[in-house]
């Protein structure tokens, strides 16, 4: 499972970086979406995956018996998803406005502020 996830995460990173380096600003945003998902899955994988063991403490006990899944990693990912969603919503609006103002979907047309 870990190996599979490793390949999946690697593939997502590769796809994200490829998309970010394209000239179209729409593809740029798609790349950013993939990148944030790749990072989320990386946290998920690297924190260790435990199957079918929810982190619940039995009634009356003070600690869970046996090995349970790590809930913190999932909390981190949830936070990261929410943040990523907000930021991407902004990015989508930004490229829409940029397209209206510049009238092009091409990063090469947006070199006025470069040096």
């Amino acid at each position: 499972m870990g190996t599979l996830m490793a390949f999946l995460v690697g593939g997502l990173y590769a796809a994200a970086i490829y998309m970010i380096m394209r000239r179209s600003i729409v593809k740029l945003v798609i790349g950013l979406v993939l990148l944030s998902n790749a990072a989320n899955l990386l946290i998920f994988t690297s924190a260790g995956m435990t199957r079918e063991a929810p982190p619940l403490i039995p009634l009356g006990a003070l600690q869970p018996d046996g090995v349970v899944a790590d809930p913190l990693a999932q909390a981190l990912i949830l936070t990261a998803i929410v943040i990523g969603f907000g930021v991407l919503a902004f990015a989508v609006v930004l490229i829409h406005r940029a397209y209206e103002v510049v009238k092009a979907d091409d990063m090469d047309q947006m070199k006025d502020t470069d040096t």
Binding site: L28, L32, L35, L42, F44, V87, A91, L94, V102, T113
Partner: peptide, 23 residues
Amino acid sequence: MEGAIKYVALNLVSSAILLSAIG
């Protein structure tokens, strides 16, 4: 708008790297 696209894109890449490192 032009400046912001570069600023947003590169800063989001940096955030993703930061998040990966934290993971």
